[in-house]
Write a protein that binds this DNA or RNA. Structure first.
Lengths: 214, 214
DNA sequence: ACCTGAACACCGTTCAAGT
DNA sequence: ACCTGAACACCGTTCAAGT
């Protein structure tokens, strides 16, 4: 039951222009450019980065954009939908595997993991948003499938591939929580690598067993 | 900056009796027993189990207990403090290692992991609460130290032990999110074991290398 | 077409007051 | 000692209205 941006489906069936900011300098906060989904999403990310998730309200976000809260409802049907779009926006920066490279599975997994980590380190205050969403909603199904493909090509069975990807995602999501306030850096980067290495060691063993069969 | 139950520290310095329900049948919801921290915490757990975290408000929790919202502030200084106490209550059921058993490290780790998982499976709607807290606050430092002790006795170095425990905690916390609504059971139990096994395999290798040195 | 104002049904929390 | 009432400064969201 993924909530979506409102696209058409307005009371009178009128379409909504999702994105009309052509000007690249659109990120000037002065704020006379017309509203758009992306402008709203970017303002939300900025607001949470500068303050915190709990402090984000439709009213405050509106005034950040020089607009009444109610105007935002032309672009998103609810606050929940807006937040989901914000999460989607963040995960756009995930580094996805390249289907061509057959055997570089470990680099591809690592690149994905590190890119996820980079996102949460850049936006620690948005971490609670990602973890409030169920993992299935957080990482779109398409991405999940592509990653399962990497595990398959590495040599794992279909079920093991799905389990491995879910385990990786669990680990990434859990690790990101250490970025929240109050448990500052604390050798977090080293710990992250350690866990990832241990996990990949374990998988490598299984791949060797399944593939070479000694 | 862990928030605590109010213990004394009332405006006039009066102490608060945290727990006077002697009667074991105290969980009858009829609700004329006097308020107490534990009674409030239990009602909160029940309420979230039956509804969801977002719907828990001081006003509603109060009326669940047959009392005005404001009465709760005699026992907890804020809603945040109450929620933290709820989390603490849940984690009371963690199965902690027994310092005696020197070499059963793997069973002890597994027991801890499985008990964490049992808690989140019993209370899926409280998972967002646990993941909203930083991992350091969620699992009290004492528990963390005892688990680090297990890794040490397994044969890991001090730094590796801390990293391993943090990785395990990350994995457990991340895995629990699959219990949230909308991504129903979905072979979750199998996936959980798989990730845990892979992780422990990886650690076992390191223990062997460090200990036996081939 | 896009934005606003006023209103509704809620919040967490404070404080003075009841018994 | 323990609980309440009224109030404050907020919420998300609806809907009719402005331009």
């Amino acid at each position: 039951m993924t909530i979506q941006h409102r696209e058409a489906a307005l009371p009178d069936g009128a379409a909504v222009a999702p994105d009309q900011t052509i000007d690249h300098a659109a990120s000037d906060t002065s704020g006379r450019a017309p509203l758009s989904c992306t402008r709203i999403i970017e303002a939300a990310v900025r607001y949470v980065d500068d303050n915190c998730l709990d402090e984000l309200s439709m009213r405050r976000l509106g005034s950040e954009l020089g607009v009444e809260a109610m105007s935002l409802y032309r672009y998103f049907p609810s606050k929940a939908a807006l937040l989901e779009a914000v999460a989607g926006r963040l995960l756009r920066d995930l580094q996805l595997p390249d289907d061509a490279n057959a055997d570089a599975w470990e680099e591809q997994i690592r690149a994905f993991a590190v890119s996820f980590r980079a996102i949460t380190r850049e936006h620690p205050r948005l971490v609670p948003l990602l973890s409030a969403m169920s993992p299935e909603d957080a990482v779109p199904a398409g991405i999940h499938e592509r990653m399962v493909g990497v595990w398959r090509r590495a040599g794992l069975s279909e079920t093991d591939s799905r389990s491995a990807q879910r385990a990786l995602q669990s680990y990434l999501s859990g690790s990101s929580q250490w970025h929240q306030e109050s448990c500052m850096g604390r050798a977090a980067e080293h710990d992250f690598r350690y866990g990832l290495d241990v996990f990949l060691d374990g998988v490598r063993t299984r791949v060797a067993e399944a593939g070479g069969a000694t």
